[in-house]
Amino acid sequence: MRKAVLIGFVLLVLMACQEKVKPEDVAKINGYWEIETVTTPDGNEKEYNISETIDYFEIKNDSGFRKKVMPQFDGKYLVNDKSEKIKIVHEEDRIYLNYATEYSTWKEEILEVSDEKLVLKNASEIEYQYKKPTPFTLK
Rank of each mutant, 00 (worst) to 15 (best):
V5K: 09
V5A: 14
I7G: 02
G8A: 13
F9T: 12
V10R: 04
V13F: 05
M15I: 11
A16P: 09
Q18K: 01
Q18N: 09
E19C: 03
K20C: 10
K20R: 10
K22I: 14
P23M: 02
P23H: 06
P23N: 04
E24V: 12
V26C: 06
V26W: 08
V26E: 02
A27N: 11
Y32A: 07
E34M: 15
E36V: 07
E36Y: 15
D42Q: 06
D42F: 01
E45P: 00
E47Q: 12
E47R: 15
E47D: 05
N49G: 11
I50K: 15
F57R: 05
K60E: 13
K60Q: 12
D62Q: 09
G64Y: 00
F65P: 06
F65N: 08
V69E: 07
M70P: 03
M70H: 13
M70I: 15
M70G: 09
D74P: 02
K76S: 15
Y77Q: 01
Y77S: 01
L78V: 13
N80H: 10
S83I: 09
K85W: 13
I86S: 12
I86L: 13
I86G: 15
K87P: 06
V89W: 06
H90F: 13
E92Q: 08
R94G: 03
R94M: 12
L97I: 05
Y99W: 11
A100P: 07
T101C: 02
E102Y: 04
T105E: 11
W106V: 11
E109A: 06
I110E: 12
I110C: 01
E112K: 00
S114G: 02
S114A: 02
S114R: 03
E116F: 00
E116G: 08
V119P: 01
L120M: 05
N122H: 06
A123L: 03
E125C: 08
E127R: 15
